[in-house]
Design a protein around this nucleic acid. Structure first.
Lengths: 173, 173
DNA sequence: TATTGTTATACTCTATAACTATA
DNA sequence: TATAGTTATAGAGTATAACAATA
């Protein structure tokens, strides 16, 4: 399962086909067969994940939030007063890698670190007013553009079912 | 949506709880609340994908194949005689990044490049005998260990449904 | 001694530009 | 001029070791 980003997102310009006299006979370039690969869950899972992230990023582009940044804002809002280790580990982010991520969010005034009075080693995390506002707008963008389109494609019931199975895999597999 | 690798895969040793006299009262360290984040498809999709890949890698560990390498072998076997550009682009791998991947597979005698006689710019790809054998063993390992366990967890019907929806997202979303 | 946040670092993935040899 | 394979390179994402401050 390889799978990287998909085709360039550039606007496709309508263009006249460059009519060229066929010299002899050009075989119609058969498509490469995916074959049994499509039956392996990992392959489809990865491709779907890349597509979903790509669309997610496009939808929140006005707010310049990556999926990782969004998840941090969501978790800090739902768990104010937690420290870096707690938030990072819940998201599967290693503590060293969480530092730069937080630096960025803090420099944009979306969240703040403050020393805990109980344990002066810990940095307590909270969203700023701006952070809450940006997160609120992000959620609306994602729900109305991203998730709404997805539910339109799959149907509400299938979408819920999909989410349930993915959660099951993440937690129990 | 952050999400990196999951908890360390080291074997969990059973160990007696280190009984320690509670000095005063230790609040039972409440778990961080995931909250609405669990409702966003991208989050669960990413975590499930990481878990699936982790398990995939473990299952084919005896053959030392990454998901990407596996997908290349699968595609070359199903499409012998195709060139690098065709195989790479079908998998969403950029041509420059495909070179090292192929170098590795070729150095392990799993596949071979050969100049096309039609177009001497192209490198035609084929599996070696060893490549076919390794791929065959890999498929068996994945089907009997990886996919079988997954179908046990979700049920056959749900698993098929999941695959269908993921494919739909990858292709139509 | 152990833990929190941090720095430094390395390795993998992904992405782009540009070269060469062919067409 | 355009394309296939390649090189070089840069940027994310992810991983580990080790240090200072604190417990």
């Amino acid at each position: 399962m390889a799978v990287s980003r998909s085709a360039s997102a550039g606007a496709a310009k309508a263009r006249k086909r460059p009519v060229r006299a066929p010299s002899r006979f050009v075989p119609p370039a058969e498509a490469v067969k995916i074959g049994d690969l499509s039956g392996f869950l990992g392959y489809s899972l990865k491709r779907a994940q890349l597509r979903i992230f790509e669309d997610f990023i496009g939808c929140v582009a006005p707010l310049q939030l990556t999926p990782a940044q969004f998840s941090v804002l969501m978790l800090v809002e739902a768990n104010p007063g937690r420290n870096q280790t707690e938030i990072a580990s819940t998201l599967g982010i290693l503590r060293p890698n969480f530092v730069a991520l937080l630096d960025e969010l803090e420099s944009r005034d979306l969240c703040v670190r403050s020393r805990s009075s109980n344990d002066r080693r810990s940095h307590i995390l909270r969203l700023t007013e701006k952070g809450r506002a940006v997160l609120s707008r992000a959620r609306k963008l994602i729900e109305t553009r991203h998730e709404a389109r997805l539910r339109e494609l799959l149907g509400n019931e299938n979408c819920d079912h999909l989410l349930a199975m993915l959660t099951r895999i993440a937690q129990e597999f």
